[in-house]
């Protein structure tokens, strides 16, 4: 295991993402934040915690999106689903999807499919902690990126114990 982002670097990246999200959305009532299960939820929890400090007294709408039933590799492998928790309408809202690692883009494609079953948002933005830019298989780019990391295709990048690590294959 090789550490790509230390705890301090990770905290700084989260802080910076939250600051930019805060600055770009003066009216936070129009915005809903959505962590993608499972890694994205960990990152989203942190980002939302920072946002709540930046906007004291304001209610941040935050949900969790599970993409299990929307995966395109469902014929290869059955996965048990995680919790879907969207306790608000997304109709005409700005939805900020939050994920840990943007790799092939397939997860985000599935997340968009899942999201649209809940309504028609005004706009969808993508916020990721790590961008593995050179391995995209779909035309999907993030609006907010914590760090861009060069990796080989077979690498596995994971968020473990508050550090971003490269797991050996």
């Amino acid at each position: 295991m090789k550490t790509l982002l230390s705890y301090n670097e990770l905290s700084a990246a989260i802080e910076q993402l939250a600051q930019r999200l805060n600055g770009n959305h003066p009216d936070i009532n129009d915005v809903v934040f959505m962590g993608v299960q499972q890694g994205g939820v960990v990152v989203a929890n942190e980002i939302v915690a920072v946002l709540e400090k930046l906007r004291p007294g304001q209610k941040i709408k935050y949900g969790q999106l599970d993409i299990t039933f929307y995966r395109d590799d469902i014929r290869k492998e059955i996965l048990a689903p995680d919790t879907m928790h969207i306790p608000f309408g997304i109709e005409n809202k700005i939805v900020v999807l939050i994920d840990d690692v943007l790799f092939t883009g397939r997860t985000i494609k599935a997340a968009l499919d899942a999201l649209l079953d809940y309504g028609r948002p005004a706009k969808v933005e993508l916020c990721v902690l790590i961008d593995r830019k050179e391995h995209r298989q779909f035309p999907i780019q993030a609006d907010y990126v914590g760090a861009t990391i060069e990796t080989s295709k077979t690498d596995k990048v994971k968020l473990i114990n508050n550090e971003v690590v490269l797991v050996g294959n």
Binding site: D66, T68, F69, Y70, I74, R75, A80, P81, D82, T83, M84, D113, A114, L116, D117, Y118, G119
Partner: peptide
């Protein structure tokens, strides 16, 4: 496993679009 998976499907049935593409083929 069946019961916990069913909980997630019950949530699907409460959505505006009560359908997922899992078994489309």
């Amino acid at each position: 496993l069946i019961l916990s998976t069913a909980e997630q499907f019950k949530e699907v049935l409460q959505r505006p679009v009560k359908k997922v593409p899992s078994l489309r083929d």
